[in-house]
Amino acid sequence: MKAVRNIDFSVEKGEMVAFIGPNGAGKSTTIKMMTGILYPTKGSINVLGFDPTKNRRKLAYEIGTVFGQKEQLWTHLTPYDNFKFFGAIYDIPDYAVEKKIEELKELFELGDFINIPVRNLSLGQRIRCEIVASLIHEPKILFLDEPTIGLDPVVKENIRSLIKRMNKEYKTTVFLTSHDVGDIEKLCSRVIIINNGQVVLDDSMENLKYHYLNKKIVEAKMREKVNLEDEDGITILKDKGYNLKIEVDTEKRTVADALKLLNPDNIIDINISNVPLEDIISSIYRKGDKS
């Protein structure tokens, strides 16, 4: 069974790239090939000038990985001891590790719990420690696989802002996979969408929104029932008599046209919004499935 086929892309230094796709699309396989975990049967990979299949160890000094579903830390040790251990793994002298821990402690706000065993930390605190552990050796690329999985919205937001800060501070390239649209939207400037083992979209976040945000959702609460039917540029998404939800294709009709159809005097309340990014991504996934 082939997990990925003819995937081709390159990433610039300091970029924050979202590498997304539905389950089984080949995201993890690609990341694992890029980090030297899996051997591709064909093709070539070059990460920071290294072929991961031939120079796995050299490459390992230059990259960091955080797999949200797989913990790297010793749970009975404190984050501080774990960081020291990771420093030893990467052959970093003690004084340099101490300095780095101090620096990352500030950046990731670990002061309150750096000396508490990992098993007693909350999931959010653990993920922060996982990220710090992967940054001890100052990697040039950080691979983040579902870094916010299982976290509550507040902690997610916190992790995202810390990753952003890290990217700004160290110019670390971030290669992120996540099913969380918030991670993608708030962190990444570029999106690569993969489906069925192939790249189906590789574009900037700005372009993605620009090209796919040509539809508006109009939700209206009406004084009287309106009998509206689908017509060119207008699709009825929900019609519950007094409550309507329609989608307007702004390339064919203006929002004003749609409002005229509803009769503005008949509208009690109205909400006009963009199509959620999640829906845009889902529609790209579906297109990929059909092709």
């Binding site: 694992k32 980090t35 030297g36 975990i37 796995r56 160890r57 050299k58 390992a60 000094y61 990259i63 990985t65 797999f67 797989k70 790297q72 793994i89 990467y90 052959d91």
Partner: peptide, 8 residues
Amino acid sequence: DSYLVQPK
């Protein structure tokens, strides 16, 4: 996996 991403 976690051992393969370490330089050891």
